[in-house]
Design a protein around this nucleic acid. Structure first.
Lengths: 234, 234
DNA sequence: ATTATTCTTGAGCGATCGCTCAAAAAAGAC
DNA sequence: GTCTTTTTTGAGCGATCGCTCAAGAATAAT
């Protein structure tokens, strides 16, 4: 779903893959289009780059990668194709930036934040499930998680986009497992607990909740799902 | 995922929507293209309709509705566009027939079969989760459930296809709820149990398992997920 | 003013999309 | 054989796909 706050990985889905994941880093970006302070040459851009990127996020989030055309994007962003390609590169590169920024947004970061702020593993995952139940169906943005649902149906030529999100999801599951392994070593989980299986179970529930939210489930319904899911905790 | 055997609905995903859902019915099909016994006129078809439909199922199952082009279909089916349109109508109609037949296939029907064969609700859902853990990642067919994942990313013009599968999923969730409500009335579930919440939870886990299977989870991993999920049973 | 630099604009590229159709081919009916 | 019916075939329709590019417009530097 989201992105991790402190380390740079989130559970089940998010964009901590690259540097620039945490804002604390000192070395200023050289890959990212750095926002120069004042001195600009030439004609100034006629659109707000962040606003345009936000419009792209919403579109990709709602429809997915291939179902969103460049015409859809330029219309929603209020710019012409030339401006889009000059500012963001091609469609694939724009999508990668969308995924990266989604991971830094509240919806894309809540998992990592919970893992960073909660000391207990049980408290962290309980918070994650309960927050997902409210965040995923929130009508202020498209339902569910972009990392989970934006590249499910793709042609072979866009298999790379599918792999990008799949790797993010699997990396997040690994973050779950690492956290649960540490919890078992700390004695929070019983010695017989299976961190790998529990991580898979939690990732399964979260991904299922994203799907349910997209199918119209309400925060109340998903909250009851979250409470039921937590009963399986060892 | 699948289709229901006895009534005509399955949990979380399947095609029991139309008549022809259960094989027990006596009235022979009038909407379905009936296979006439012997006497045929004109040039005989040069391809096996069932085999061609099977190829279409695999393609839609693997890539989804929009990511599968008519050219992909005709290539895999070994026929030319004209034959496809003559035999199956347009792409949308072909997809509807694919969904219908998927629901009658083993992978698309195991949920309904378990619900029909198991007398106890707990036994039925335990069997469903355990079978899903083995069936979803089975390499003899595309991973996961077609009804869950074949129409996630669609353009607005194909919203109808998305709605078709969403309705199927939600109808299956309702079948779960009905079954659990009956179980509570029979005393199998405690009076305090919440059939609606439990149905949502089970649908969530199943849909999550389909996604996990698509992301590469093994039968062993998914079986452990299923066992963990069953610990939440009231 | 003139020049240099950056961005916007609108036309349009080749490729693919779902789909159609006249003509040819293969069967039974006569 | 000839006629009728059904299917196959291959060309190709209009629309959309992601993307490019020369020309013009708007700014800072000189």
């Amino acid at each position: 779903m989201t992105e991790a706050a402190t380390p740079d990985s989130a559970p089940t889905a998010d964009p901590p893959a690259d540097p620039a994941a945490d804002p604390a880093a000192g070395r200023a970006a050289d890959p990212a289009p750095r926002p120069r302070p004042h001195p600009r040459r030439g004609r100034p851009p006629a659109f707000d780059r962040d606003e345009a990127l936000g419009a792209a996020i919403r579109l990709f989030w709602e429809r997915g990668y291939e179902a969103t055309s460049v015409t859809d994007l330029t219309t929603a962003m209020g710019i012409r194709p030339g401006s889009l390609y000059a500012a963001f590169g091609d469609k694939r590169t724009l999508f990668e930036e969308v995924v990266r920024r989604y991971g830094h947004s509240p919806v894309g970061a809540f998992v990592g934040i919970a893992l960073a702020e909660e000391t207990g593993a049980r408290a962290a995952f309980a918070r994650i499930l309960r927050e997902a139940a409210v965040i995923y169906p929130d009508p202020s943005h498209p339902a569910g998680c972009l990392v989970i649902s934006a590249a499910t149906n793709v042609t072979p030529q866009d298999a790379g986009v599918q792999a990008l999100l799949r790797d993010l999801r699997n990396r997040n599951r690994q973050v779950f497992e690492d956290r649960l392994l540490a919890a078992r070593q700390d004695g929070e989980l019983p010695p017989g607990a299976d961190p790998k299986a529990l991580a898979g179970y939690l990732a399964t529930v979260i991904q299922g909740m994203s799907q349910q939210a997209r199918d119209g489930a309400t925060p109340e319904e998903l909250t009851r799902v979250a409470e039921l899911a937590l009963r399986a905790w060892p």
